[in-house]
Design a protein around this nucleic acid. Structure first.
Length: 741
DNA sequence: TGGCCGTGACTTTTT
DNA sequence: GTCACGGCCA
């Protein structure tokens, strides 16, 4: 063994070392939270290479780009010159699938220059398919259909196969819509995210020569977050690894929280059935959290039936027990959180070491408001990422058109953005005409008269087609370096820039400017290209074709943004408290964590309370949240929570009762809204609770006396005489008045 | 064609 | 409460 290989085994615990060293049979590492999962994977890769395996024989699959990037970075560090880390293939399942499909496009029966649809286009394509199948979207909502189509794809079923196994009318209809959907995608030369997996799995299953080539190349496989794999991903892994069986998967069934997205827990629970001579190594030592936090989370998760037994032990020793508080309402809850964060700050925890977690994005609002009032710097990890914003997607749609003028979905999105007189009626007329004549839509746009549209629409259509084709020519004729200029030109000539400039002006308080976001796309594209060209110069990323023309660059950039969601935008270096959903928190850790909304209906969520399997997933979600905390964990619930504008009495989460007695139940009678400070956050009085003569406190005006109460429209107007500012008329529902005394 | 208004729906969302 | 979509009217 080389000394470098030897040194890699130092500073690992015994089970970690076993997992790194193990050879010869498939390996399942059951890695509890904070047990050094990433450490094991990265050390294992570096160790394999140090023992003489070629870096290019290593394939490491992850779910997120962030995880893949982190893995590459850490492996590189560990290898420190012992071998070429850049030849290791570490990427997401989807990116790997896309790469294989492009390479073996012919065998996979996909166009080699396919584009990848985002969720929005997927919905549009689905709508289109529903209507092409002759159904109304009243009976079949795109989202419901899409999730069934996703299910078919996950099971590697073709539309025909799906139709063949349909029992009733509804299933047969959905299979027909599925077939229509596949046609829409094919016309646009597009694949959706599920295609990247299922088509790769089918390619590997059906084409022995491709399978053998890839098996020969990737003789060392690793899979991260194995509990989140779906059936198609399992097939990809199984096809590649079942012969050489040099496979190491790492995961934790207790942290499987994506069942609703198709993750199949059986993949990890029944690993030994799929790979009969498998070895299993549990990692139960937790190096992240203090003992009472680990114990509380562990007690909770033991209620689940669908799990593999694993003792969790804190290696950090004693610390504060988690605290649970039942608050009056969500505002009071938010204030309790604020108090906790401020106390943490006083103990020396930096803001960035704190997180507030919730089940639903809609719960962030009240928290944001409270943190803003308390002047606590914070960032919300949003559901809608940069590339999800309207203006960005509009520009991206134009870019896609330039790359692929046949992209009907992109065209449909921006044909009339900004408004150019080419509305739905004319567009569908032209679409119909194109379909009849069997010509690409872009060609039909150039001769709109044939479709019989108004002169205004015809003019707009022709201009649009000419624009798109001109961009396309420029893309082909310009060097890759000039991508930024091309993107800038498209932003300008499409009219988007002027359009959003106008909108920015009218909407000064949008917070951030849409035009600025467009400019960000321009700079992001040009940064992307220079990065890629720099990599090419040093010969990194083998097997990826070099970028020559602007068109190559444009395609590569589009692929990147299709496959890179930007939860990657989460920046832990930012000196701010992080607000995010429990799902988004997976894989992260913070010294101080607040988890809000522990109520029946929120956690567990109302839609997941009735079936035992779903309920267990909710419990795992709670487990994941709790185990993010290193030193201190605050759990809260609100006795009353406003949902859909209505205040509703809530029932404490069943998970609270499942926690051990050691968890401190804090005094619940305390009202954080009535702490005598400025009264800003006092809960509003119940309607009708105010009477003439009452003394009240207003956040801005101070203390006063109610002089009159009168109904006005649907609300109640109050005349209040304030000591400091005199008489004011206030609307009761909006003025957060607090009754004194 | 396009804008405005009313209705309904509304977990989570690695790619 | 908020957002998105569909229908209706100018």
């Amino acid at each position: 063994m080389s000394s470098h290989a030897h040194s890699l085994l130092e500073r690992l615990t015994e089970p970690q070392r076993q997992a790194v060293e193990h050879r010869g049979t498939p390996l399942l590492v059951l890695a509890g939270p904070g047990s050094g999962k990433t450490r094991v994977i990265t050390h294992r890769i570096a160790y394999l290479v140090a023992c003489g395996e070629s870096p290019s024989s290593v394939l490491a699959l992850t779910f997120t780009n962030k995880a893949a990037g982190e893995m590459r970075r850490r492996v590189q560090e560990l290898m420190s010159g012992h071998g070429d880390a850049s030849r290791i293939v570490a990427g997401t399942f989807h990116a790997f699938g896309a790469r294989v499909l492009r390479r073996y496009a012919e065998q996979a029966d996909v166009p080699s220059d396919f584009t990848v649809l985002d969720t929005d286009d997927q919905a549009k394509a689905c709508k289109q398919a529903i209507s092409e199948a002759g159904e109304g979207s009243d009976r079949f909502t795109p989202n419901a259909v899409l999730s069934e189509i996703g299910g078919f794809k996950d099971q590697l079923l073709s539309p025909d196969a799906a139709a063949a196994q349909s029992r009733d009318w509804r299933a047969r209809t959905i299979a027909r819509i599925f077939a229509a959907y596949e046609k829409v995608l094919a016309r646009s030369k597009a694949l959706d995210f599920d295609d990247l997996l299922c088509r790769t799995a089918r390619l590997l299953r059906e084409h022995e020569e491709v399978r053998e080539l890839l098996r020969g190349r990737f003789r060392n496989m690793l899979v991260d977050e194995y509990q989140d794999t779906n059936h198609a991903q399992f097939c990809m892994v199984h096809e590649l690894a079942r012969e050489h069986r040099r496979l190491c998967v790492v995961g934790d069934p207790d942290q499987s929280i994506y069942g609703w997205r198709g993750a199949d827990l059986r993949n990890i629970l029944q690993f030994e059935q799929s790979f009969p001579d498998a070895t299993v190594i549990p990692l139960g030592e937790n190096f992240r959290s203090v003992r009472p936090i680990v114990d509380a989370a562990s007690t909770l998760i033991q209620r689940n039936r669908q799990r593999r037994h694993k003792e969790l032990r804190s290696m950090r020793g004693e610390g504060d027990a988690p605290i649970y508080v039942r608050c009056v309402d969500e505002r009071s809850e938010a204030l309790r959180v604020v108090r906790e964060l401020e106390a943490g700050r006083e103990r020396g925890v930096p803001w960035k070491g704190m997180a507030v977690l919730y089940r639903m994005n809609s719960m962030s609002r009240v928290l944001e408001e409270a943190l803003r009032r308390a002047d606590i710097p914070h960032q919300v990890v949003r559901g809608t990422a940069f590339y999800d914003r309207r203006e960005v997607r509009d520009l991206v749609a134009y870019l896609r058109l330039a790359a692929n003028p046949q992209d009907e979905l992109a065209l449909g999105r921006v044909a009339n953005v900004p408004a150019r007189g080419l509305g739905d009626t004319s567009l569908s007329r032209i679409e119909l005409h194109a379909a009849k004549r069997g010509m690409p839509l872009i060609e039909a746009l150039r001769m709109p008269e044939e479709a019989g549209v108004t002169a205004r629409a015809a003019n707009a259509a022709r201009k649009l087609a000419e624009l798109v084709l001109a961009w396309r020519r420029e893309a082909e004729g310009s060097p890759a370096e000039a991508l930024g200029e091309l993107v800038g030109r498209i932003a300008r000539e499409s009219g988007l820039e002027a359009h959003y400039l106008q909108e920015d002006r009218e909407n000064a308080d949008e917070g951030e400017s849409r035009v600025e976001n467009l400019a960000q796309v321009v700079s992001a594209s040009s940064e992307f290209v220079s990065e890629r060209l720099a990599q090419e110069a040093v010969g990194e990323e083998e097997g990826v074709p070099p970028l020559r023309t602007g068109l190559d660059a444009l395609r590569a950039y589009l692929e990147r943004i299709a496959l890179v969601a930007d939860s990657d935008a989460f920046d832990p270096e930012n000196g701010a408290v992080t607000l995010m959903t429990l799902h988004a928190a997976k894989g992260l850790e913070f010294p101080l964590v607040c988890m809000v909304g522990l109520e029946q209906g929120s956690l567990p969520h109302a839609r997941s309370m009735d079936t035992p399997g779903d309920l267990e997933e909710e419990r795992r979600l709670c487990f994941v949240g709790m185990t993010r905390a290193e030193d201190r964990l605050l759990l809260t619930s609100a006795a009353s929570r406003t949902m859909r504008g209505q205040p509703m009495a809530t029932i404490e989460s069943m998970f609270v009762r499942e926690l051990p007695d050691e968890v401190v139940r804090e005094d619940t009678t305390e009202d954080y809204g009535d702490d005598g400070s400025d009264g800003i956050d006092a809960p509003a009085p119940r309607p009708g609770g105010l009477r003439v003569g009452m003394r009240v406190r207003h956040p801005l005006f101070g203390v006063g006396t109610i002089e009159a109460v009168s109904p006005r429209g649907g609300s109640t107007a109050l005349r209040v005489a304030f000591a400091a500012v005199g008489r004011k008329t206030l609307i009761q529902e909006f003025a957060r008045l607090q009754v004194i005394g």
